[in-house]
Design a protein around this nucleic acid. Structure first.
Lengths: 359, 359
DNA sequence: TTGTAGGCGTTATCAA
DNA sequence: TTGATAACGCCTACAA
């Protein structure tokens, strides 16, 4: 007869074992967990106690097959170890868990191929995706969205639900902040070329700099990592810029380490601004950085996805998340510039937040 | 008739759709993916091309139900955002992916309850678990191991397969290193009380210190985080110790920040040693720390688990992973001590590795 | 309030 | 080399 023998050594108790033990039908056991309100109080209690004794837990995979609802979502990020994504994942996973969803993670290692592979392999096991900083072509993302609901983070594709950390204005402020300190030549330490965030940030920087008559030099890097930050220091120094705007805190940290290794000090020899806000307050000196509220972004992305899953259709809305420039101790007047303003303090009014103590 | 209607908006192509389109049976389609060697070359090609055109991907959940093999594993850690666990996860996830397994992550937020919940909810969807630094009672872990194969990291329970980052010897060396610099009173900044690693580290520290006639004061903390590190600085200073051995790099970083905020400098006013090796080289000053090779540990744990899944039984072996003390720039003679030895350099011979440049 | 039975997508057994 | 079919564990429409 068909059907296969199976290694019983690690098998979990099934619904029918519970049913037999409790002397009820499997349907009753099922209802005791999914729709207890349809059952007699006593029955629910009986079934649950038997289930507990046997160690029965409803099998998600089987339930998924039957209902089409896996109770899982997946979170795809380019780099698990980057604090921005780690915080985003943490916020997202907590939100999912609160609503009863389990979370897959995929680390694409910054490569489109791996990202694509993860997305296709996971698609049957999850109800939807959060894709953060996708390195995929827009057309491919749109295709995938037809198979499973996707919420994008930091990728702006029309008609798809997306959460955009709107750091452009803060980068503009950062340029103004540096300008007010007397900087006339600023290096932009670039992020990945496929990154929407990088385009947005670089765009804001060049535009604001042009308006202020400030020179911007773009320093390309291999990927947003501590090592890449260190590695670009020579090129950064060659630009003769007196300040660096980094794509993120991790790179800024790498640059600070690289400068330190060359006997240069921050902000005395060079001013630095990062972006993320996670690493920034933990560094020495505390990094002037753009706060992105990444855990909040993860949470909100998951909430949008789950609402869509339960509501039935995706909102296709574009949501912007505000950021703030937080001035700490890595920005000061340039070495030979005007020394009227105190280091680490901006004289400009506006939305700039100044952190006086370590947070 | 029974069976339910389902929202078709996001449904994936199924095996029978491919079968119909390719004019073969569902069994043939199945074999084209699972056992192509049983099929005619032409047939395999035909089926695969049709599948590709339709965007068909075998449904893992259904396969899991039929075979009992989910093709998933789960990685449970106390804190996703801790670089030690982030690196461990990255190593583990990459190893799993290479062997065709997808990875769930669970962040237990340092609580046993959440950890237990994650483990039970995930058990039906995964073939096995990697549990890192479990905060669960040993008896509970043993119970869970009967349901699904588990490989433990940094938890020493007899008869279970476990990978232990054996940092004890390096902590002993750290004590000797500090002693050789002239320190006579050292604070140990503790980790979580349920943590095997903490017991091992504290044990090694007290034992070695006793042999050298050095005083150890244990400073308890709420959890291994940057904030907790900052928060314990006052208590640390009250101990009058001239050096601090921290449970991990994250706490060491918090302490360094807290000292900086109080106008104290490292290693001039206080020497600090951390543990992990991820954060250490990125800090300023570069942190003397114990290198734990955490990504490697994640990889190896997964390999043990997968070998067990394929081999059929768990090895129940206890594997030790060696660590190394890497001396960087946060250890020096105490303020009023002998100043014969150069700061940041140990005069002791042996296995101590000295990092002269930033890595 | 509870039981019966068909079906979710896939795989393995058996037969052809 | 391929096809028909039972079975995996669960859920739900319908009957009782």
């Amino acid at each position: 007869m068909p059907g296969r023998k199976r290694d019983k050594s690690f098998s979990l108790p099934t619904i029918s074992q519970v049913a037999a033990e409790a002397q009820v039908s499997a349907a009753t056991v099922s209802r005791a967990f999914s729709h207890p309100e349809l059952l007699n109080r006593k029955t629910v209690e009986l079934v649950r106690s038997v289930a507990k004794r046997l160690g029965y837990v409803p099998n998600h995979a089987a339930r998924a097959l039957s209902t089409g609802r896996a109770g899982n979502i997946a979170l795809i990020v380019p780099d698990i170890t980057n604090p921005f994504f780690a915080a985003l994942m943490r916020g997202g996973q907590a939100a999912a868990r609160e609503r009863g969803y389990a979370t897959f993670i995929g680390d694409s290692d910054e490569t489109p191929e791996l990202e694509d592979m993860l997305l296709t392999k996971l698609s049957a096991q999850v109800e939807g995706f959060i894709i953060a900083s996708s390195r995929l072509r827009g057309s491919r993302i749109t295709e995938l969205t037809h198979r499973r609901p996707c919420v994008l983070v930091n990728r702006d594709i029309p008609n798809l639900p997306r959460l955009l950390v709107d750091s452009g204005p803060s980068y503009s402020q950062a340029v103004e902040h540096l300008a007010s300190l007397g900087h006339r030549s600023i290096a932009y330490i670039a992020g990945p070329s496929f990154s929407w965030s990088d385009r947005q940030r670089y765009g804001a920087v060049t535009k604001t700099a042009a308006a202020l008559g400030i020179k911007i030099v773009r320093v390309p890097t291999s990927r947003p990592s501590f090592e890449a930050g260190q590695a670009c220091v020579d090129e950064l120094l060659r630009t003769q810029a007196s300040a660096a705007l980094a794509f993120d805190d991790v790179m800024a940290q790498g640059i600070m380490a690289g400068l330190g290794a060359r006997g240069l000090s921050v902000p005395h020899d060079l001013s630095i601004v990062g972006c993320d806000g996670i690493l920034a307050p933990t560094l020495y000196p505390p990094l002037t950085s753009i706060e992105t509220h990444c855990a909040q972004a993860g949470k909100q992305a998951v909430e949008i996805l789950l609402a869509a899953l339960e509501g039935g259709n995706l909102p296709s809305r574009r949501i912007s998340l505000a950021t703030e420039l937080v001035v700490r101790a890595t920005t000061a007047p340039p070495p030979d510039g005007l020394s009227a303003s105190a280091p680490g303090k901006s004289r400009r009014p506006g939305h700039i937040r100044t952190a006086t103590t370590l947070e």
